[in-house]
Design a protein around this nucleic acid. Structure first.
Lengths: 232, 232
DNA sequence: GGCCAGGTAAACCGATCGGTCTACCTGGCC
DNA sequence: GGCCAGGTAGACCGATCGGTTTACCTGGCC
């Protein structure tokens, strides 16, 4: 094989590396990724074939394989970009909606994350969390997209932890875990018509939790044993 | 198309109707359903083909189609049986572990549901909730298995509601919603290595919530506005 | 003009998909 | 013995899967 310029699909850079790498894409690649994002989320990853993606994007499989290298890389790119969008959405929402004078105190940014989630889901989330769905369809732990999925969840927990510390929680780890639980639960229960307003319920429960987590531990906390019967 | 005895795959009864219908199955059908359950859960529904299921069960596709009628019905039967197992597990656990003198009061049965969940997942749940995963792979709302999925979630919420009423919660609806949220969140976050002990965290948060939900509303509740900024 | 990245069009590959079919064997029941 | 449900074995169907290949067109840049 000569030293020609072929080989190594360039968009592979968008799959695993730099944050802004997903921005500059060939027009064809852009349409492919957009089409793939919609189809993967709405119909499922394994249920959507590359032929359909290419057709829907108005291109051919050739372009798809030239730009992305394969379906797995395209899946990874889809999740990566979705992750970037969600992070940007959440942080900018929190920055704008909780920066001013929140009347409910230091926990305002943490509560705002639930409002951001509600609006995000209202706009583009009728089928639950794209990452949880993807994880369901990609059992292989070695699949490159798995890293993107776990990173997304880990980032949210980390973000909630930062906000918890900033809010002055006396156990930011516990608070972040609890709020992460509520986030995931709300996303899952939405779409499955079992709870009327899952995000609202999660926010209400979060407000209760916050109230307790932000008051000094000596204030009103009864000395209940918080260790479950079977320990650990 | 005479009036012969062919037609109408019998196991279709196990897909949509009666609760105990899944019990009496042909030996071959039993092996097929067992194999399908394992494969569907561990590798994903769309990723597993009927050929593999038949081979793994030591039968042929002929038997599979004779007994179940098609892949969709087999999927439905898989979810239905898993649902039955989970309900039996949860209720029997709560009955045996919370019937006696729970020292933490009337909320004991509700807390016990989290212990039941923890043990259930420890035994057979490395890949998250089979129903959530299935929902991710079956976008079509008309798919027969969707009914089983939503029924499973609805049942859990209903069960939590009953226990909440029995515990004397002054807002059993709100409590059931909150606990359902924690259940789902715990199941999702397990397997995605982001929180050390999701079920434990959920249980701890549930204990806090219970404490508040079971005390009279006039006790210590500050009159904070529980309406989010943007209402609803 | 030459070069080349980017793209379109379409044939092609082996494998697998869900599903059907014929043929034959077995054991129990009437 | 006849009948039949249940099962095994395996060929077969059209469609689609992920992926590769050849050929040709286009516009910009040197």
């Amino acid at each position: 094989m000569g030293t020609k310029t072929k080989k190594e699909p360039e968009a592979a850079a968008a799959t695993a590396t730099g944050p802004g790498a997903a921005t500059q894409l060939t027009p064809g690649a852009r349409r492919i990724l957009d089409a793939a994002s919609t189809l993967f989320y709405e119909r499922g990853i394994t249920a959507v074939g590359v032929d359909l993606i290419a057709k829907e994007a108005g291109t051919t499989k050739k372009t798809l394989y030239d730009r992305f290298g394969g379906k797995d890389a395209l899946i990874t790119a889809y999740l990566h970009e979705r992750d970037l969008r969600w992070r940007a959405w959440l942080t900018s929402w929190v920055d704008t909606h909780a920066a001013g004078g929140g009347q409910s105190g230091a926990g305002e940014p943490l509560l705002a994350t639930f409002d951001a989630l509600a609006e995000w889901m209202r706009q583009h989330n009728p089928r639950g969390c794209g990452f949880v769905n993807a994880a369901a369809e990609l059992p292989d732990p070695a699949h490159p997209a798995r890293r993107v999925i776990t990173e997304q969840k880990r980032w949210l927990r980390g973000y909630l932890y930062e906000l918890s510390v900033a809010a002055g929680a006396h156990d930011p780890d516990e608070l972040a875990d609890g709020l992460a639980l509520l986030h995931e639960g709300a996303v899952v229960l939405r779409g499955l018509s079992v709870v009327d307003d899952p995000v609202g319920a999660a926010r209400a429960l979060a407000a209760q939790t916050l109230e307790r987590a932000l008051t000094p531990p000596c204030a009103a906390g009864p000395p209940v044993a918080d260790t479950p019967p079977h320990g650990r």
